[in-house]
Computed example of a mutant assay.
Amino acid sequence: MTKLTMTVNGRKMSGDAEGRTLLSDFLRQELELTGTHVGCDTSQCGACTVHVDGLAVKSCAVLAMECEGAEVTTIEGMANKDGSLSVLQQAFQDHHGLQCGFCTPGMVMSASALLKDNPRPSEAEIRHHLEGNICRCTGYHNIVKAVLAASGQPVPEGVTATE
């Protein structure tokens, strides 16, 4: 076991990990941050998406040891300082961009990375960016509406799949 230290959601945190421990497992089991979901363990579904040093990564495809000293943001770190939902989280709620909620943490983390790089993405850009995140419940339409709303753009009444 090796002692790892990283800044998670603005707080310096430490825990023990074996060399083979995935970041997703380290966050959930060692640091008890269970908002990061593990859906497939093969980096296909995107439920485990977090930000490492400002980049969206699938935490089931990253070894915890690779994040020694890194700045990690999980879904728990997305809320406002007062604990209220961020604009993006509120948009997911307002536009029914979640149903069972399993994919939601990864969707929010991926969408926030998109909005950081492209503050006013088109519907097509949103759909393209979220291709690495699987949702089995919503059909993505309301997720796209939520991201459009969070970006401050008008939300068309009938957003439809165009691709």
Rank of each mutant, 00 (worst) to 15 (best):
M1Y: 00
M1V: 02
M1A: 09
T2F: 14
L4D: 06
T5M: 08
T7A: 13
N9R: 00
G10H: 05
M13G: 05
S14A: 14
G15D: 13
G15H: 03
G15V: 12
A17Q: 06
G19Q: 09
R20C: 05
L23Q: 04
D25A: 13
F26L: 08
L27R: 15
L27F: 05
L31Y: 03
E32N: 15
T34W: 04
T36W: 14
V38R: 15
C40A: 07
D41E: 15
T42W: 01
Q44W: 01
C45E: 04
C45Q: 02
C48T: 05
T49E: 06
T49H: 01
V50F: 08
V50R: 00
H51A: 03
D53M: 01
D53F: 00
G54Q: 06
G54S: 00
L55F: 09
L55Q: 11
K58D: 11
S59T: 01
S59G: 05
V62G: 07
L63W: 11
A64K: 13
M65V: 15
M65S: 12
E66L: 13
E68K: 14
E71G: 00
V72G: 06
T73W: 05
T74K: 00
I75S: 06
I75R: 03
M78W: 00
A79P: 04
N80L: 15
G83R: 12
S84T: 15
S86P: 07
V87L: 13
L88D: 13
Q89Y: 11
Q89G: 06
Q90D: 14
Q90G: 07
A91P: 06
Q93W: 03
D94H: 13
D94P: 13
D94E: 14
H95Y: 15
H95L: 12
L98F: 15
C100N: 09
C100Y: 01
C100M: 02
G101L: 05
F102L: 10
F102A: 01
F102S: 10
P105K: 04
G106M: 09
G106T: 09
M107A: 13
M107R: 02
V108N: 04
V108K: 10
M109L: 11
S110I: 10
A113D: 15
L114I: 12
L115H: 15
K116Y: 03
N118R: 10
E123T: 05
E125T: 05
I126W: 03
R127T: 02
H128E: 15
E131I: 10
E131P: 02
G132Y: 01
G132L: 11
G132K: 12
N133R: 02
C135K: 01
R136Q: 04
C137M: 08
T138K: 05
T138L: 12
T138N: 08
N142W: 09
N142V: 12
N142M: 08
V144S: 00
K145L: 06
K145D: 02
V147D: 07
V147P: 10
A149N: 02
A150D: 03
S151N: 14
V155G: 09
P156S: 11
P156E: 06
E157G: 11
G158R: 07
V159M: 02
V159H: 06
T160M: 08
A161L: 08
T162Q: 09
E163M: 09
